[in-house]
Design a protein around this nucleic acid. Structure first.
Lengths: 234, 234
DNA sequence: CAGTGGTCTAGACCACATG
DNA sequence: ATGTGGTCTAGACCACTGT
């Protein structure tokens, strides 16, 4: 029904399985028939059943173990997938006009807390960049970023007056591991000025540590203007 | 090398492709060889190459289009996958002892803002539950939840004095769609009391709306104690 | 139109975990 | 020891889309 043809596709199987879970036909913790039996029921090959069940397991609905079989997860381990947008995209998607402004850029010895946080060697040098992102000239995000010079030597020649450090890094360091943290912090006087809020106001904050093959590359704190919400559906 | 045998697996291919992206051999926006060519290079079938590339696309590294081929994404759309833990699991995983306490439970007519938020009919009735989650007797989370009675009629007989509403819902409503939002809010006097912080302090907050086949089931605001961080790696 | 990925089949061998 | 999922092969047809 879903497609032009009448073959049973892995998508059909996924839908049917979800339907049976929703309807209670397959209760939490219930053991599903094995792949061979389902293949017979759906008149397809085991390969097709395998793909359907594998994806459902990947999405957090099922648990699969060799020999033990496939079960409905009792506490559906649903996973939220946040696609972390680039600031510019996020602003433009909301209909705003993006504007970037550099606040400060200087090389310095890494402060102690950063050395500890990124497991740097003592006295390792870093580039410290602070900048603002505006949506139609309204403050949107204040970014406070450190870049480890030993990991990205080219950064010493970089000029962040017209391109944001994140855009620059994305072009320069092709692939990375990321540790992302969300928290609520309190606007100090400086931050309050940048974001145009009162001192002491709550500020939604994201911290992002980036690694390139085990080497710490950058630590960024991103402070969002009042009213910001990070949303997802799943 | 990775396995006992010497066959090229889709995992090997994924690793190799990532390596080539990291090393810059395949620059952002570069067009990869097509599946048939890669199958020859890796001495495997196109099916195996397909799985490797399909997963990498799914993970946000590649973009695939029929006829146009497979490209390295210029701005790697990495997706953070938050596994939203049950409060009890989260506390116990951190080594704490979980304690639950009901604060209030009553049925009422949905307030206007909730009617709007969940697209309810006017004057629809809801169960309003407020409760606390403690980690070794330290406040961990204050939960403020509304449950739509028409969507879950059994809730009128539910007693949340010993089981949390979330645990109850997970057992009762097997499968749902979820809209999850993170934000920073400000502790009012009531909240400050529950979480043992000063009034006005920033509070990390999660809002969760749950739907069952298009029907709104529940809206929950979860306020976390000071210092809470929501982290993920990817 | 033609090239590329999307998917399915039929069959096989194997890794792993449980009884 | 054995049943279950994990993966690969070899081949096929098709859907989409850029030229």
């Amino acid at each position: 029904m879903t497609q032009t043809s009448d073959t049973t596709s892995y998508k059909d199987i996924k839908q049917t399985v979800l339907q049976r879970i929703r309807s209670g036909e397959w209760q939490p913790d219930a053991l599903l028939p094995n792949e061979q039996e389902l293949a017979v029921e759906f008149s397809c090959t085991r390969t097709t059943v395998n793909r359907a069940l594998r994806e459902l397991a990947d999405e957090g609905f099922l648990e699969r173990r060799r020999k033990a079989g496939t079960r409905v997860l009792s506490a559906p381990q649903r996973q939220a997938r946040f696609t972390i947008p680039l600031v510019r995209d996020e602003i433009e998607a909301a209909g705003g006009t993006y504007r970037y402004a550099l606040v400060s850029q200087e090389t310095q010895t890494a402060p102690d807390w950063l050395t500890a946080r990124l497991a740097l060697r003592v006295d390792q040098r870093v580039m410290h960049v602070r900048c603002m992102h505006f949506s139609t000239n309204t403050p949107f995000q204040f970014e406070d970023r450190w870049i480890v010079i030993d990991s990205v030597p080219q950064v010493e020649q970089a000029d962040f007056s017209s391109i944001g450090p994140n855009d620059w890094l994305v072009q320069t360091v092709p692939f990375t591991n990321v540790e992302l943290t969300f928290l609520a912090s309190r606007a100090d006087a400086t931050l309050a000025g940048f974001l145009d809020v009162s001192e002491g106001e709550p500020v939604f904050t994201a911290e992002r540590i980036t690694w390139l093959q085990g080497q710490p590359v950058t630590f960024a704190k991103m402070y969002f203007a009042a009213g910001y919400r990070m949303s997802t559906e799943f």
